[in-house]
Simulated scan of single mutants.
Amino acid sequence: MNRLTKYLLRETHHQTIERQKEIDKLQSAIKYLWINVSIYILITIIEYWLSIIGNSQALKADALNNLSGVISTGVLIFGLWEATNVNDDDIIGKQLPTKSVRSKDTLQLSRFRLETVFTLVTSFIILLISLQIIITGIIGLFHLEDKSSPNLMSALGAGIATVMMFGEFYINRHYGKKIGNASLMAASKDSLGDVVTSLGTTITVLISFFLNLAWLDGAVSVLIGGFILWQGLQIFQESTLNLADYVDPKLESQLKAEVEQFKKVHKVVDLRSRYNGNLLIVDIFIMVDPKATAMEIYHTNEKIERKLHKDFDVFDVTVTIIPDPDDLKK
């Protein structure tokens, strides 16, 4: 078996292993996201019921916030399921040809992007719910004559939600770090925000009850809506940048500097990077000595790929060779 064949087999084996690792991560994330959905549903029911009994607009806003968590997490689970459904013969209902130029492994990279697509969809859901909370809260502030202060049942509901949401935050953060999954880490940020809003709701209801400030409950519900709106915009921005093939310029500068350290590389002409889901793909154009042998270039390519994978967790590196014109003149 010649060296080229060994190289191609090794590359295929490496990428297959990395793809399967990513699939395993996403499938693990789905299990933990189902826990999220269960907790969100329970909290939503408790808070909404006690908001009616306790007469609290802020608690009702927090319940709708958690309802947005149920919807957005459910949508994300569907997206992750589609992304990991390797044996399916279609993508989102679009039938795949029986004979395709692209292999199943290459098609899987496209499926990984579905995680980002459905995360973007969840941002729209969050934005719509936040606007509804803000509008309802503002309307309530103009009708304070018919509104009384919330009672302690509302504080109980918000307190229960705070404790449960903290548990969800811990699960998402712990296992998100453990398996290195962006969806769970994003969910942990969302959960932490929910802890803050539920704790804020608890404090608001108690102050409103003891000081008889009916307007405070409505004002805080508007603030909660604003906080949810900000979260939705953050998720929208991150997902959109990912789909637009945006990669942190600092990271790209580090990648370029790393490649230029190799003796055989005269200059990095261009570097293009993008994400497929959580996987970083890099295309590099380098100048080398035009008199370098194919074997020398081959070894340089291998070293670049191994280095970027080890130091930056780059999934795939494509190196394009350009002969240095200055050396051609010599």
Score class of each variant (00 low, 15 high):
L128N: 09
N87I: 05
L80S: 05
Q234L: 11
I92P: 00
V259W: 06
I71P: 00
I304W: 10
I297K: 10
T320F: 12
Q254T: 06
G137L: 08
G79C: 03
N278Q: 08
Y170V: 09
V319K: 13
V268H: 02
Y275S: 02
I126T: 10
L107R: 08
T119N: 11
K25L: 06
A83E: 02
V75R: 01
F78H: 00
I304G: 11
Y246T: 07
E115V: 06
F118W: 09
A294L: 12
L50T: 05
R10G: 14
V314T: 08
S183A: 13
I304V: 13
E145C: 03
D326E: 14
L114D: 04
D248R: 10
V282I: 10
V282L: 08
H299Y: 12
S100F: 14
P150T: 08
H174Q: 02
L216R: 08
G176W: 01
N36I: 02
I23T: 07
V205Y: 12
I322N: 08
I179C: 04
V163L: 11
T202N: 07
N151C: 09
T12M: 11
N87E: 10
K25G: 01
I179N: 01
D289A: 12
I23W: 02
L241P: 00
S183D: 03
I77Q: 04
L8A: 12
P290I: 00
D326A: 15
S191I: 02
L184K: 01
S221Q: 10
K264W: 01
Y32E: 04
Q234Y: 13
S221W: 05
L206D: 03
A219I: 11
E238S: 13
L127Q: 09
V269P: 00
L156A: 11
R3P: 01
L120V: 02
D90C: 10
A219D: 11
K60S: 09
L96A: 14
G176L: 04
F124W: 08
D313R: 15
T116K: 02
T136I: 04
T116N: 05
S253Q: 07
V317L: 11
